[in-house]
Design a protein around this nucleic acid. Structure first.
Lengths: 338, 338
DNA sequence: ATGAAAGCGCTAACAA
DNA sequence: TTGTTAGCGCTTTCAT
């Protein structure tokens, strides 16, 4: 029937008629295309406003062959890491009047394939694949549109991945400890088979070696406070003058460790300095004392990945391989002995 | 030019040609419309697959006057509460082959208006507005499409809001404590002017009164662990035989309180039972002991709101006012004395 | 500087 | 049961 349901009803033709011009002119006037007399442009604009004209993006997309939409596909579910990433992605996209279509793959390959097809059918201009997963994730393959992976890496070296530099982050932490006179360092992190555990360990060891420090312990376990507390026990047993600086693989571990140490009578940071990883506000603030930590700058990561994607959509080379962005150290009280 | 960029190139016409039918028939065959001979449908399907036909949803949307897309507008930023809501929303929408367009209002009215306009231009079929904000949020106003608010309430009684029943949640907590022999109860929550603080307090008081319990304290402060610890100090000073059950307004508070009590030599749950609110995994698991808590069932909330929206899009009455869904109690160790 | 006309790829009403 | 014909609302050459 005529007006199906949510029709704004008013189209370029209505505006054209009111302004006394042709539809083509309306299009040009409203989009700043072509050569129009200023007076005409004005008149069209007024007509559009008067009629509360809502240009139909769907029609525009069809005509233009471009949707100004990008898909955001999460490999694992929406996690805590997804939020800052999304924020950054929206930052970049919003600036370019591009909208985000959300798809939560939930770590299910089938679901993911389904969503991928959907995004393609909807003719998105590009896709950003986010995900925090141990190690790499399967590439979505060669697509007719640019794809960028953020945080979680693609297993295809031809794809572009934007992520944080775990190794550098850990180095930052070590250098900070060393600068504050710490000499006997330990590393306490998550599961040994996680890529981030490994990369951070490499950074830790490299920096420790470079500074000529003693590495007393390299402990791997879980990404939990409980593990942090357990590790505190392990370290505390031989604490007297032994370990005086600990780099943790996450803020949760760091917090658990701090709690554990305090309860074992070890003072943080006087006796032992602790540095976390993630700069997760909740953990970092609630810890006693507040945690010095390595910030992977996830919002920035999101922004960067989206802007690379936009550039690629506009014809630039997308690039390939892993782009690792530097982390930043955020100094709070857990690491600086009076 | 002919192939702009990301053209799958293959259209209904190509499929039609290969299958030896007309474009209209292809449409019907692929969408299960009209009366087709099974053999024809088959042939079309094969042709489509062979050509790797990707039906252009944009064109379909334009023709059908429906986009199978809903907008998700967050009032405050993506917060921790947003994740489970999104999960639920996606659950419902995904089932209906509807996609989600993401818009993060970030609490900025200007930004929000901009996004709203964008969603309307894109002709979304409906909008779900999410938000955790103290008190109500401004209605986005009468729109030509259905809108449902979730978690954060609209200030317009004509709008539909789906949220959790804070009062009932608090009652649940009290009843649980009472059932376990607790008799002198306290309520420790966030800022007094937050609606959720108030509603939960009402539930708390009503249930306590109904059970003939003594209410020793009603404390309001912040949604933080630090405040929980402070409150623990306040309670502990007069603990000996006084307070034996505490209902907290959040898991963070509950966790801080538990830590504070423990450090003050009060045993949880032997001396005092503690119940949190939110069932936020991180907090609830890391607390010692793990927290009994009220679960607002956010995923379910998301699912419900989206399915109401879908129904409305399909012509059903949307309804109005606040629909408060019951919370559920999750029992762990912090509340059950031996 | 503006208008006319074709077409983006699909669906849907109407014929055949 | 299938084909034909119009659009959906916009952009975009190409004339004028």
């Amino acid at each position: 029937m005529a007006s199906t349901r949510n029709d704004s009803a008013v189209t370029v033709r209505d505006v054209a008629q009111l302004a006394g011009v042709s539809p083509g002119t309306v299009s040009k006037a409203l989009n700043g295309q072509g050569q129009l007399r200023e007076e005409t442009r004005q008149r069209v604009q007024e007509a559009a406003e008067k009629l509360r004209f809502r240009p139909n993006q769907v029609a525009r997309s069809l005509a233009e062959g471009r949707t100004y939409t990008v898909g955001m596909l999460t490999s694992d579910s929406f996690g805590r890491f997804t939020l800052p990433l999304m924020e950054g992605i929206e930052d970049s996209l919003g600036a370019g009047k591009v909208s985000t279509l959300l798809c939560d793959g939930r770590g299910d390959p089938l679901r993911e394939r389904h969503y991928l097809a959907e995004l393609l059918n909807r003719r998105v201009d590009g896709i950003v694949v986010t995900g925090r997963r141990p190690d790499e994730r399967r590439s979505v393959g060669q697509l007719p549109i640019p794809v960028v992976y953020v945080l979680g890496r693609s297993d295809d070296p031809e794809d572009l991945t934007v992520t944080n530099d775990d190794e550098q982050g850990a180095r930052l932490a070590v250098e900070h400890l060393v600068a504050h006179g710490r000499t006997r360092l330990a590393y306490v992190s998550g599961p040994a088979h996680h890529l981030s555990t490994q990369l951070r360990r490499q950074g830790f060891e490299a920096a420790a070696a470079a500074a000529g420090m003693t590495v007393s312990d390299l402990l791997t376990g879980h990404w939990s406070e409980a593990w942090g507390r357990t590790a505190a026990g392990l370290l505390a047993r031989r604490t007297s003058g032994l370990v005086d600086g600990v780099v943790c693989g996450s803020d949760q571990i760091a917090r658990g460790l701090t709690d554990g140490l305090r309860e074992a009578g070890v003072r943080v940071p006087q006796d032992v300095s602790v540095v976390g990883f993630d700069n997760w506000d909740v953990m970092v603030q609630a810890a006693r004392p507040p945690l010095t930590t390595v910030d992977p700058k996830l919002v920035r990561l999101g922004r960067l990945s989206a802007s690379r994607l936009l550039a690629a959509i506009d014809g630039a080379e997308l690039g390939r391989g892993v782009v690792a962005q530097p982390c930043e150290l955020v100094i709070r009280e857990s690491s600086v002995p009076t």
